[in-house]
């Protein structure tokens, strides 16, 4: 483990990463994620260098992933709505999914919780749940698509994030809204501003017309139907409007940062 720790990214919880990765990665070594037993020849061809030097392949893949961020930002149409579905098509039960068991999901006392608002905003006041519940809400029945490939249709109700950003006087020319969450070991994720301003991007307080249960992110999640599931933060503690790319829990481990649908 000692050697592994050095190879991992600072700020990412190592124990947790290992445990989560075990599902898909029985032999966890950071290097291994690039190579595969039978692909050594292919690697040599791609990188044009010695196969032992897999870090250059890794660098190349990271560059392509950045390129893919740009392509996706270019493809992103701020007016294109995610398809909506009738309530009869809602997936029951809607799956709980996280990098930890449900037992380890954050237990937040709604009365004590406050949403912290930071960064490039005029009004940095923190918001209680009661205050947030008073904001106008909308309901959407959309498809949640997981990076793993499965998908499920759910019903989410809450305040459009763009309305809230307007309300707090956010500088919407900033590049990102960065969310920090209460998930164990600190989940966080950046959301590009154009997606944050998308009409369906929502501060969600209800699932299936009920107060958001603990399993789905109580007291607040950010529902982003134009992004993969891991870009939909749950148990949100704070949002920061920023021009800096601050990374994210999964983004830092190699998931494509834009991950738009």
């Amino acid at each position: 483990m000692g050697r592994l720790r050095k190879l991992l990214i600072p700020g990412v919880d190592k124990k947790l990463l290992v445990r989560d990765a075990v599902k898909t990665m029985p032999e966890l070594t950071r290097r291994r994620f690039i190579t595969a037993g039978t692909s050594l020849g292919a690697l040599t061809l791609l990188t044009g260098c010695d196969v032992v030097d897999s870090s250059s392949a890794e660098e190349l893949l990271k560059k392509v992933s950045k390129f893919n961020d740009a392509v996706q930002a270019w493809m992103f149409n701020p007016d294109a709505l995610a398809p909506t579905f009738p309530e009869s098509m809602i997936t029951k039960p809607f799956p709980f999914n996280a990098y930890y068991d449900l037992d380890d999901a954050p237990e937040i006392a709604g009365a004590d919780w406050k949403l912290e608002v930071r960064g490039l905003v005029e009004n940095k006041k923190s918001w209680t749940l009661d205050e947030l519940y008073k904001l106008p809400q909308e309901k959407q029945v959309t498809r949640h698509i997981c990076v793993e490939g499965w998908s499920a249709i759910g019903s989410w109700t809450g305040t459009p994030l763009r309305d809230f950003l307007k309300l707090v006087g956010a500088d919407t020319r900033a590049k990102y809204v960065w969310f920090q969450c209460a998930d164990k070991d600190g989940y966080n994720s950046p959301l590009d501003m154009r997606t944050a301003l998308h009409p369906q991007t929502q501060m969600t307080f209800k699932f299936a017309d009920q107060i958001l249960p603990r399993a789905y992110g109580f007291p607040m999640k950010i529902r982003v139907p134009t992004k993969l599931g891991f870009k939909n933060p749950k148990y949100v503690l704070s949002m920061e409007v920023t021009n800096d790319y601050k990374g994210g829990y999964w983004e830092d481990q190699g998931y494509n940062s834009f991950s738009g649908s």
């Binding site: 990765a21 898909t24 990665m25 029985p26 291994r32 994620f33 690039i34 190579t35 595969a36 037993g37 039978t38 692909s39 292919a42 893949l61 990271k62 392509v64 992933s65 893919n68 997981c146 990076v147 793993e148 490939g149 499965w150 999964w250 481990q253 190699g254 998931y255 494509n256």
Partner: peptide
Amino acid sequence: ASPLFGFTFSRSITLGGWLGGALLWHF
């Protein structure tokens, strides 16, 4: 990562090591 059928592919014939790595290769 999310099999459609009742089987998975042996890791000895896959590329990427885990989902994130495989997605990088695929994309």
